[in-house]
Amino acid sequence: MSTSIEDKLYTLTFKPDKESHLVPNQDLCRQCADKPCLNFCPAHVYSWEGDHLAVAFEGCVECGACRIGCPYHSIAWRYPRGGFGVMYKFG
């Protein structure tokens, strides 16, 4: 019954836009010691790649947790363009 986050995301339908709707300020991210977004993002969008924050925006569920929860407000956050992004079947 236990499923990995990859399995969970695999249940979702996405229509990814060409460019990211999430743009971190990498300078701020480098200063950030805890990087809580790596853990609290429910879609595991963020990973630390040694010197920068990688953003798997295609799998973002648009909840806004990183927008509010980032201690440095480093993420420039907007909704994907109309019609793009996650598409829930059950909701």
Binding site: M1, T3, D7, T11, L12, P42, I68, Y88, G91
Partner: peptide
């Protein structure tokens, strides 16, 4: 919880504030 979900299949995962 486990017994009431047993045999079930995850159809969708979601997150919201």
């Amino acid at each position: 919880i486990k017994p009431v979900l047993a045999g079930g299949e995850t159809r969708e995962y979601m997150a919201h504030l």
